[in-house]
Amino acid sequence: MKEKRKHVIVAGGGVAGMEAAGSLAEMGIRVTLVEKGEDPGGHLLQWHALFPGRRPAEEVRKYLRKRIAHENINVITRTTVEKVRHHGHEIIADLSGGTEERADALIVATGFDLFDAHRKEEYGYGIYDNVITSADLEEMFNGKRVVRADGSVPSRIGFIHCVGSRDEKVNNNHCSKVCCVTAVKQAIEVRKLLPESEVFCFYMDMRMFGPYYEELYRESQEVHNVNYMRGKVSEASVNINNRLVIKVEDTLAGRPLKMELDLMVLMVGMEMSKPGARLAEASGLNTGINRFLESADQHYGTNRSGVAGIFYAGTCTAPMNITDTISHSRSAVEETVRYLGGR
């Protein structure tokens, strides 16, 4: 009798899920890709350009779309995997619609949620007209227009790093890794769009961990005249002209500083996604102190859940950039295939 074709469920259709689905399909494995939104693509769908080279995000979206356009892949949208169970060697995934899906293995690729900026009350997101998030700014870049709420052109723009990251007050002690370099990228883009503007980044540490990130940081200072000020902004308010007024310590001068801004961009960090957290809770998957999924081994088993047949890919385990997400996803596929072959 011919062996039955293997089937893998991928929970989450962002960068990690799409890459995993594509790799598995290429190897002749049947894949069910379960995506909560209207279309696969995840957070990348709203991004305009990517660090470090500022290439259009559409290039990577195109690659990923092509990746999942495979006869072995069945995409189910507007659906989440709520729970994973075992039935012998079989994996049963309970889907949000009340149906279930059976498979030989499952890759969790539930990704991250952007930090909800409303929670940092002192910055007045949702209250003051010209406080936006890094994601909102990408939407503005998509429309090629960076303007204030009243349509006027901002002359001074401030980027606030670490919003929702490295902050015990919102229960996130972890670093979201990508926000620093995103701020540098966005600061350059703003300077290019609005050459008359003055741009500030307010940072606690500049964490330029990836290739060409430090070079981008340097370029932002040397070529684009982006200003950096080391200090965490403590509060924002507005004055009678509806300009934002921020308080920050210029820690290098050792003195408090007050500054007016026309537009304030909050560099929102990454948190474990809500569907991911539900899935972990319902299925008994371990989570770490940062609430992301805890891998079986931090060094050589970051794709392993410790539960037979369940593997992890991408930012459901920790904040990472697209490059690392794709690599992590491919290694998740490798682990999955090895598991299927060994059964």
Binding site: Q221, R255, P256, L257, E260
Partner: peptide, 25 residues
């Protein structure tokens, strides 16, 4: 004690940056 960025005089910065652009780095 606070630095008020909106009232401080940045003419020196402009002068220095223009003549010694590496200052930005």
């Amino acid at each position: 004690r606070a630095i008020n960025y909106d009232t401080s005089d940045r003419k020196v910065r402009e002068y220095v940056t223009m003549r010694e652009p590496s200052f930005r780095l």
